[in-house]
Write a protein that binds this DNA or RNA. Structure first.
Lengths: 342, 342
DNA sequence: GTGAAAGCGCTAACAG
DNA sequence: CTGTTAGCGCTTTCAC
């Protein structure tokens, strides 16, 4: 695995009989260097195949131009678009991304945080694992004033910035929509309310019921992991309920789609017997029949926003802790799976 | 953005009145260090919040423990699973990932390659952009003996390793299946055959026709970008063909699903009037009605395989250029969209 | 405008 | 088993 020798600024300096200081300056386009000298240096550097050594530079500069990203899983359309948004902004600003997946495990998240810390990322973007219960593993960043932004999945705190949608309101809107469509017995399928997103969606759901004088029933909450399998299991429970529910609000699209498929298999009509609303606006919502009513969740924008904000912190143009929560707009997208009127 | 001072091995050495060399050794768990000394060092390091400086280390070691990944886009289920596979192996082996998207643009891919080069990745995993026409931008890696592996999307060459499925055979199987189901006029929807995957799928399609004595017709090839929109446009063309085709083999699932939806809108029955087969086994293939027959494409395994292979090269346990092509198994998954018999 | 030189933090001879 | 020391390649004062 031997590599051919790297060209350094010393090689260039030698060949040109000038000092490394001048070469270093020329390479950074320092205006203090004589134009002709600069041109000579740049030309020779090109010709010799010089590339700057990031480590030497980082060692001096104490920065890495790297942003760390910790996400639960890279397996949803939503997360892909978030990453795409982050990548887009970060690359344009000359930052690299280091991405790790916590696989929804608190332990792996702690390990990831450590990796990021040791790699001295300049800043960190995090969407929390499902069962993360405290943020102690991020204290090290806050101690060193390394900016950290949570997106989508967060946790109560008052030290970092969050980029979110208003999950409470989105869930409220979704539930109200079902009620307006005539639903009176609405089941909510969600994940165990440890994470903000599920807590807030649940509270929005409850609020909508309460505002419409519908009594909240605990047995109308079905908790699972929001997978396709969870959807099937939930439907099994639902069809055994009496009286039969007439609406389902599911906290993500994949599970909602699975519910629709299972309901149909069970001989129920969607939306006539049971209306369904999902969450995320995954492309699959336009494939399932009937098409799924859902909440449009701006993943790409969320990624861009989180990255932009982080980089603003890094550039010092925005002081740390100046922003606490950035809310992105989301909206209900009504499709056939919930339309029982007009 | 001031950071609190970092602890270095010098600080530890000072406090313990020993040399930095010993500290350095202890930190790497060098067996040559006295056990008691080692324990003292490790304890103090922990207590002082020491973290090793990767740059200083890299500067010395000339390696980064970083693997670069260049992909066209992070927006498909397939690509997400590939990345998950790569990430899994890389993390387990102590490597970090730097990921960039070429956004299907040759220019961005060249820029990405340069970024990777300047970041001195130890190795590189690449899936080529759609319109990449030459591999000149990867020559720099090969010159420096930096191992480079292409996965999925590749290009003729004889210098790097490829990790692939047998696209020709998969397409052959898919087409034969349609023929066995009684299809005689099979349209193939694909992307412009610049990339191996599309070239090979086309050739598999042709071979299947020829083996069944069906004449190849140029107007049965519809070229687009395999998006959902491309699917709609393709169907518009198809329904104007006379005689009407009775089978469609689409080079990816998203587009195939869009075709099914459009065909149904046009009043055609799938599979009775037109049978459809896709490619990738994206989860959406089990949502569309009828469920989509497709090729199961092992993305996660492909990612793992590519990463594992690269790391073997890096560890020197496998000499560079020792393997040229790794073929992964793929298979036809028959579902309702193509079943016209039995 | 340019140069000399002191590190940034770590590792690996080499010497003891 | 431990210490001394010379760099890895670059940036940045401080002189000139």
């Amino acid at each position: 695995m031997e590599k051919t020798k790297e060209i350094t600024i010393y090689d260039i300096a030698d060949r040109l009989n000038i000092s490394v200081a001048t070469v270093s300056r020329a390479l950074k386009d320092d205006p203090v260097v004589n134009k002709k000298t600069k041109k000579k240096i740049l030309d020779l550097a090109e010709k010799m195949g010089y590339r700057s050594n990031h480590f030497a530079r980082n060692l001096r500069n104490q920065r890495t131009d790297t942003i760390g990203v910790i996400i639960p899983r890279l397996n949803s359309y939503f997360m892909s678009t978030v990453i795409a948004g982050i990548e887009n902004v970060a690359n344009a600003e000359g930052y690299n991304l280091i991405i790790t997946q916590s696989s929804e495990s608190f332990e792996k998240e702690v390990a990831s945080a450590k990796t990021m810390f040791n790699n001295r990322v300049d800043g960190l973007l995090v969407s929390l694992a499902y069962d993360t219960e405290n943020l102690d593993h991020f204290e090290q960043f806050s101690k060193k004033n390394i900016p950290l932004i949570f997106f989508d999945r967060t946790e109560d705190h008052n030290r970092f910035t969050d980029v979110l949608i208003d999950n409470h309101k989105a869930a409220y809107d979704a539930t109200c929509h079902l009620i307006e469509q005539g639903c009176k017995r609405i089941v909510h399928i969600t994940a165990s309310p440890k994470r903000n997103v599920y807590i807030d969606r649940l509270s929005g759901y409850k609020q909508a019921l309460s505002d419409h004088k519908i009594r909240f029933r605990n047995d109308h909450i079905i908790v699972g992991n929001l997978s396709a399998e969870a959807g099937e299991e939930a439907v099994e429970k639902i069809i055994r309920m009496s009286p039969l529910p007439d609406g389902i609000f599911v906290a993500n699209d994949n599970c909602a789609v699975s519910c629709i498929i299972s309901l149909k298999k069970a001989g129920l009509r969607v939306p006539e017997d049971i209306a369904v609303v999902g969450f995320n606006n995954d492309p699959v919502s336009k494939v399932v029949e009937p098409n799924l009513t859902t909440i449009n969740y701006p993943g790409y924008e969320m990624g861009e926003m989180a990255a932009r904000n982080l980089i603003n912190h890094l550039n010092g143009s925005v002081p740390l802790h100046s922003t606490n929560t950035i809310l992105l707009r989301s909206e209900l997208v009504v499709r056939a799976s919930s339309l029982r009127k007009g």
